[in-house]
Design a protein around this nucleic acid. Structure first.
Length: 433
RNA sequence: GUGGCCGUAGCUCAAUGGUAGAGCUCCAGAUUGUGAUUCUGGCUGUUGCGGGUUCGAGUCCCGUCGGCCACCCCA
């Protein structure tokens, strides 16, 4: 039996990668004052058709439940967010700065960077109309990427503004019914031949190509860029009016993050959706809002292809899962004494492992090495002393077993390692002082 | 959903239609209690699955499942 197409098993290494990615996401989001929330994995199908129309069902993992309800695995978090925010509008001061790491699902043929299931970091700001909120969100996106070790050589966030195009279309007296069509043509323009785009755009082709080629005048985007420059992020971002994004509900600034090589799909994308909450709440609540999402699949691919980011991840993971102490039981008659000591060490928060069954000493040291243990503590003929070996330097010394927990060299070796862990990786299990 | 390419050991891959192999990994040893390297030995396949052509199919044909790529769509 295989997993279903587009679904993943997470073997220990994959889990370590996932935990690393989540840890970075949480760490940076907290740095920006965002708080974590979550919603149901399963929602009424209507929540999604209401926002995107009945066509969306083809892309959903949906079914009828045993209570005859039409339900769907969430394909994204935004509709849930809109529902939650509308329902609890009065309970929170604005603006809300919320983030989440939902697992999302889509029923689509899978390809590289696009599975039927993925985790995506979501950050949203609700109740703030100012462009400063857009800047804050884009800055968060940049800092998330920086947290993985990417530089401006590796990634770029392309920023645009739908309002700019709406103004343009209005100025050219285009009927509102055709806006979406034009926006989609602009969105696709860099992926298809110019002639094809031109025929989609019709009479507007010439002025639109001029803007795409030479840029356009936008006071809002100028302000936004200036603010990002202030934060030292200028080289990470680029104004690019060719970014429109496919979704109809975006109403203002939109942006997408890409690898500089342009080999992969978008790393992240989002924008302002000032009308969506009102639409989804049937007018009950109206709040300006904006948000973006970053998926774990494409991100993981880029980390793997970027040596600096990959090394950073591997080191963090090794630090996180390496053992503190491997207890070598050289004489089986010492096993009971060893177990008592192991328990004390574990009670103090150290990571300790040992052979469950009798094993040759050489094998035990091999296991210690392979598990990344910092120290080996050998229980054998020296009893009631134990032999403490620093596996990095090879130094060993004898310590009376009653003094082990107080031995300064031993404990300082471990303490140093513990303190080198980033805080978010340390808090997953209680650590010693 | 449509089209193209691909599917051999746990992994990476070989095998003019003629008895399925290598490297790595893994496991066990190299005389008694120390990690690497080295050396020796060992395990593993219904060649994704099911049909067909043929004296004979990993190889050719059809179907199916899975993967990759493009399209569609993009949360």
């Amino acid at each position: 039996m295989q997993p279903l197409p587009g679904f993943r098993d997470f073997l220990p290494n994959d889990c370590a990668t996932r935990n690393y990615v989540f840890a970075r996401w949480r760490e940076v989001a907290r740095r920006y004052g965002f708080v974590e929330w979550d919603g149901p994995v399963l929602e009424p199908t209507a929540l999604y058709t209401k926002k995107s129309g009945p066509e969306i069902v083809a892309q959903l993992f949906n079914f009828i439940d045993k209570g005859d309800r039409e339900v769907a695995m969430r394909p994204e978090l935004t509709p849930t967010l809109a529902r939650v925010v509308a329902a609890h509008d009065r309970e929170f001061k604005k603006p809300l700065k919320w983030f989440s790491i939902p697992q999302c699902f889509r029923y689509e043929k899978q390809q590289r960077g696009r599975l039927r299931e993925h985790y995506q970091f979501n950050a949203d700001v609700i109740g703030e109309a100012s462009v400063e909120a857009d800047v804050e969100l884009i800055a968060l996106c940049v800092d998330l990427l920086r947290a993985f070790g990417f530089t401006a050589e590796d990634v770029v966030v392309r920023i645009s503004d739908r309002e700019f195009w709406i103004d343009f279309l209005r100025t050219h007296n285009l009927p509102e019914a055709q806006w979406q069509e034009i926006l989609q043509a602009i969105d696709k323009s860099e992926r298809e031949p110019r002639e094809k785009t031109a025929s989609r755009l019709g009479p507007l082709a010439e002025p639109i190509f001029k803007i795409l080629d030479e840029g356009g005048q936008s006071e809002k985007l100028d302000r936004l860029l200036a603010s990002l420059k202030n934060r030292g992020m200028a080289e990470f971002v680029k104004i690019d009016l060719g970014i429109v994004r496919g979704l109809a509900y975006y109403s203002g600034v939109v942006f997408e993050a890409f690898d500089r090589g342009g080999k992969l799909r978008a790393l992240a994308g989002g924008g302002r959706y000032d009308n969506l909450i009102q639409q989804l709440s049937d007018g009950a609540v109206s709040l300006p809002a904006l948000g973006f999402a970053m998926g774990d699949v494409v991100l993981g691919e880029l980390i793997g292809e970027t040596p600096v980011a990959k090394k950073k991840m591997e080191e963090a993971i090794a630090d996180h899962q390496n053992l503190d102490i491997y207890v070598v039981i050289a004489k089986e008659e010492r096993r009971a004494d060893a177990l008592a000591q192991i328990q004390s060490l574990r009670d103090r928060g150290h990571r300790v492992d040992f052979p469950l069954t009798p094993m040759k000493v050489g094998k035990q040291f091999q296991a210690a090495e392979q598990l990344g243990a910092r120290l080996a503590i050998l229980f054998g003929d020296e009893w009631p002393q134990v032999k403490v070996k620093d596996l990095k330097t090879g130094d060993q010394k004898l310590v009376p077993q009653t003094e082990l927990l107080n031995d300064s060299t031993t404990m300082s070796t471990l303490r140093g390692r513990t303190n080198s862990l980033p805080p978010d990786l340390r808090d997953s299990s209680p650590r010693p002082e």
